[in-house]
């Protein structure tokens, strides 16, 4: 988990050097545009484009694959369910007693498109975080006038997730030290009760810690510091990369309906 928020790849590649604000905005535009694509060749082109950019920044496809793994529990469920739930031409069906499930061609196609879209979003965001780092990204968000409370929310989550994890570890260790053993499932009443209390205690402790952190910030004069300029104005090269990324996505988006038009005309 440690290296998760630090920049990765070549430390000084062109992409690492692009102004973080320009990078953030162009990558977000890229994701927004690419997510509306509906044909797989266009989506695949976008994935290849991102992998190419990653290679430029010294990030191997393996690096992306390892990170994409974390998204699977969330997006994966939908990808698995879609082929079974979308109506259409049936390609296979399984019967178990009185129940029958069938896989439709349209469902598979939709799941494929969805996974490509997710892959694009995850790749793009990982490219952004890996070439910018948490610090740079937060600076960019602040200078892009993202409400301070949102930026702080991200910063605090990252900062305190380790403290909380350690706290949970210590608490469960202390419980085990008094011979507590987790039952086989959450339905085991005592396990459920104990875990509930552990979570409750964690919430209370976090709330108290939150208050102490707030006081510590006040003690150092937390107020409204005048908007500070931490980053210089982007230069020509920065704009160039930003435009390149956005225009690539925009081109795909504009060409896609055109492409389908040709397909229908050629038929």
């Amino acid at each position: 988990m440690d290296g998760y928020f630090a920049p990765a790849g070549f430390p000084d590649s062109v992409l690492h050097r692009v102004d973080p604000r320009v990078k953030t905005v162009s990558i977000l535009c890229f994701v927004a545009l690419v997510s509306t694509l509906t044909s797989w060749p266009a989506l695949l082109l976008a994935v290849l484009f991102l992998i190419l950019l990653g290679a430029l920044a010294g990030l191997s496809p393996l690096y992306f694959a390892r990170r994409a793994f974390w998204v699977f529990p969330f997006a994966g469920a939908l990808m698995i369910v879609l082929p079974f739930t979308v109506a259409g031409e049936i390609v296979a069906s399984v019967e178990v007693g009185r129940f029958a499930v069938s896989v439709s061609k349209e469902g598979i196609a939709q799941a494929f498109i969805l996974s490509l879209r997710v892959a694009n979003a995850v790749l793009a965001l990982n490219l952004l975080t890996a070439t910018t780092g948490l610090c740079g990204l937060m600076k960019a968000l602040r200078e892009l006038r993202v409400p301070l409370v949102f930026v702080q929310l991200i910063e605090f989550t990252v900062r305190y997730i380790f403290v909380l994890a350690e706290e949970i570890q210590r608490m469960s260790l202390a419980r085990r030290a008094r011979a507590f053993r987790t039952g086989r499932s959450l339905l085991h009443k005592r396990t459920f009760l104990t875990l509930g209390q552990l979570l409750g205690a964690l919430f209370m402790r976090s709330a108290e810690r939150g208050e102490r952190i707030y006081y510590a910030m006040l003690a150092r004069g937390l107020g409204n510091p005048s908007a500070k300029k931490e980053l210089r104005w982007p230069r020509g090269g920065d704009w160039g990369w930003g435009i390149c990324i956005t225009v690539f996505a925009l081109t795909l988006r504009l060409l896609e309906p055109g492409g389908r038009l040709w397909q229908t005309l050629l038929k």
Partner: peptide, 8 residues
């Protein structure tokens, strides 16, 4: 941990 809250 109550006082040092920033990312660097």
């Amino acid at each position: 941990d109550d006082q040092v809250f920033s990312s660097s």
